[in-house]
Amino acid sequence: MRTDGDTWDIVSSVGLTALGVATFRAIESLRPNALIQDPYAPWFVESAGEPHFTALLASPSSLDDLPFSGFMGMGMGIRTKFFDDFFLTAARSGVAQSTILASGLDARAYRLDWPTGTTVFEVDQPKVLEFKERVLTEHGAEPKADRRTVAVDLRDDWPTALKAAGFEPSTSSAWSAEGLLAYLPGPAHDALFERIDKLSSSGSRLALNYFPSGMDAQRFADIRAKYFSKDPFGDIDMAALFYEDERADPMQWLTAHDWSVECLNSIELANMYGEPIPDLPPELADLAEQSGYLTAIKTAN
């Protein structure tokens, strides 16, 4: 179970979920008509050497016998494209600084064609960023933006660390909270939005994905166990990683603090990208309809 101040590397606790996400980004990149291309993701999986994910990467067809297996890679493609598009749209509209909160093994600073002058801040646990930096350096990777890493826990005073890395609150910014919110305890979850709001000038943008409100971790784990005889994410116990304490509703909070908010559920976004979700059992369909993606623009200082 999670504890206050717990830490992790890339093959333990929350870090292992980032490795799983990288694995499915790599698998999606191999799919015909893939929504994304992430040539960096396999480097991380291979370097980490975690048996379950290296086996999946070596033989993606092993997922073919699992129900809804195609949805796993496609779902990660949809999620990745959503955040890719968000950042590029913001940058091409003149937003010159982007901050990826809980960046994990995200390689957007390298993958995307950023406009000249863009700064990309990556915020995550020190051990995660150390692993990522080592792998990228070993492969001679060069970012396409001014990339700055910020090694800090998002439960701590990350705004001070971010500003020390050169973030300018007076300049409009783009923020992402991808696959993050459920891993934060309630007070840190709510503080995240307060801090983003305080650091954001008018015209700043935010994107995040969300689970249904009131979706407890055990129910999520039970649904996974019921419909996936062999969990594609291996032995990760999501019920032990999620927090279920009281927290603000992001859409309501942002709207009340002068952010213009738009939401799409997972099915709507898949249809928008021309990747309709296959027929799902009622529980999975309900989960897809109630989970989704939010974008917001700050309309006042």
Rank of each mutant, 00 (worst) to 15 (best):
N33F: 04
I36Y: 09
P32R: 08
G20E: 04
D65I: 11
A34R: 09
Q37V: 13
F82V: 09
A22N: 06
T80L: 01
L35D: 13
L19Q: 08
G73P: 00
A48C: 01
T7K: 15
R31Y: 09
W8P: 04
L30F: 02
P51T: 03
A41Y: 06
S62R: 15
P67R: 05
A18R: 02
K81W: 00
A34E: 08
L56G: 07
G5P: 08
L16C: 13
L66P: 00
S47N: 03
F53D: 05
F68G: 08
L16N: 14
S59P: 00
G5H: 13
W43C: 09
T54C: 10
I10D: 09
S47H: 13
G75T: 07
G5S: 11
E46Q: 15
G5L: 12
F24V: 08
S29P: 10
L57F: 03
W8K: 01
V21R: 01
D38P: 10
G15K: 04
P51M: 03
Y40F: 15
F44D: 09
G5W: 07
S61K: 12
A26F: 06
F82C: 09
L57Q: 01
G15M: 04
E50D: 12
G75M: 02
T23H: 05
I78H: 05
E46M: 05
D65T: 15
I10C: 14
V21I: 15
P42A: 10
F44E: 11
G5Q: 09
S59E: 15
I10Y: 00
R79K: 14
P39C: 09
S69I: 06
G5C: 03
G49T: 02
A48F: 00
W8E: 11
G77M: 10
P39D: 07
K81G: 04
T80D: 04
F24K: 07
F71E: 12
G70R: 09
A58V: 07
V11R: 14
T17K: 11
W8Y: 15
M72W: 13
G75L: 05
W8R: 09
N33D: 15
H52A: 11
F82K: 04
S12W: 00
I27Q: 06
A22D: 08
M76D: 03
S69H: 12
G77R: 11
A26V: 09
G77A: 13
I78D: 02
D6V: 03
S47Y: 08
S47F: 03
L63D: 05
D64E: 15
Y40D: 13
F68D: 04
P32N: 10
I27C: 05
A26I: 11
Y40H: 15
G49P: 04
I78Y: 02
S29R: 09
P42E: 06
Y40C: 15
F83A: 01
S29M: 08
L56C: 07
D9Q: 11
T54D: 07
S69A: 15
A18I: 02
T23Q: 05
A48V: 10
R31M: 13
P42R: 12
G5Y: 07
T23K: 04
S59H: 14
A58D: 15
I78F: 02
S61E: 15
I78W: 01
